[in-house]
Design a protein around this nucleic acid. Sequence first.
DNA 1: CGAAGAATGTACTAGCCGATACATTTTCGC
DNA 2: GCGAAAATGTATCGGCTAGTACATTCTTCG
Lengths: 209, 209
Amino acid sequence: MAEPTHKPLRPQRLTAKGAATRERIVRAAAELMHTQGVERTSLDDVIAVSGTGRSQLYHYFADKAAIVDAVVEFQIEQVLGAQEELLRNADSMNGLTRWRDAVVAHNRSLKGAHGCPLGSLASALSDSSEITRQAIARGFDRWEGALRTGLQHMRQTGALAQEADPATLATGLLAALQGGYLLAQARRDATSIQVALDTALDHIRSFTR
Amino acid sequence: MAEPTHKPLRPQRLTAKGAATRERIVRAAAELMHTQGVERTSLDDVIAVSGTGRSQLYHYFADKAAIVDAVVEFQIEQVLGAQEELLRNADSMNGLTRWRDAVVAHNRSLKGAHGCPLGSLASALSDSSEITRQAIARGFDRWEGALRTGLQHMRQTGALAQEADPATLATGLLAALQGGYLLAQARRDATSIQVALDTALDHIRSFTR
DNA sequence: CGAAGAATGTACTAGCCGATACATTTTCGC
DNA sequence: GCGAAAATGTATCGGCTAGTACATTCTTCG
């Protein structure tokens, strides 16, 4: 039994077709889990929406937890990707305001429903799997880091006072965003997220000169 | 069929014993749902922890959704009750700071785990039942109202500038709290909630004279 | 007391859901 | 083109879970 032929559980290399199927699964799972929650989303739901079969799910993923992990990574890229340009330009009060406008407008169009794609996963999964929790935390770190970079730039250029701490302000801003998402979701009204972000931006503005 | 004897589904009046049992059920369900999530908590879990039987659950509640609703009301009272004195005295920067200290200290003792008892319910339930969502929203309203009352008092006594808007500041403060809870939960570190609350308090402080 | 109803115990069921086994078709690299 | 591996289809299973049925014990109150 020198070299027992382990059955190759996951495909060793994906074909173009396989990669497309895998992505359809993840996209469907991500949308379902965001709109109706992780636990309420069954594999049958994912199969129906993705237009695949049961065998595909287990061909590309070890189990449901692996799908959830893929959804977490997917949503992190989705959220940061969708905001990439806005975040890159969030290095001035005008840039921060444009970012705020985009977030609030999108939330308003949904009447606050579903909350933040990453935040709702954080609430649902942080206490279940340690690996998953760390992945979500890394997503928040990247998000906060992007905000911090913009604030650091503002301080370097003198737009922000030297005593302003970009790291602290970035944490406060991300917290205001997440808390705003949650209140807006519970109230079915985007006003909360708008007020929360405006308050956080007001605070940052108080450090401008 | 003038008066068909409808079977009295729920007990018409609770005896002392019955009320105690009902409360044991709600307490056990609340703790389980907070620590492991609403969907991951089965009725068998509730039965085991509460030390009751299956028939009791359905004697006091119509179904699982009714238990969840009772848990929501219970947690609202728990959260507001535990902070009642602190919130009543949150009408000065010192009072607000004491409230902040208590929240942060408690969260630190848990290393951020589980998040806010009401916030996690909000995330899990806001998109499922409309009735439940409204109950949670009312809980947030009361919480925000308590903070607003303190800030209004500060403005009336001149501690806060006239141009400060207590309603806006209260929303921002509650959002910072909820966002801080969420980030702390994902990061398993109370630093985020501490920074978020400090930032929000700093902002309020900028309106003091 | 004694009966009505509350409180509790035991047993069961139907459906869903994650997971597996196995067969078949399709694709890709040599 | 041919063999290996990927991709997909079908059928099934065991366990968990919410919910029901029914019997029994306890409490309250007239």
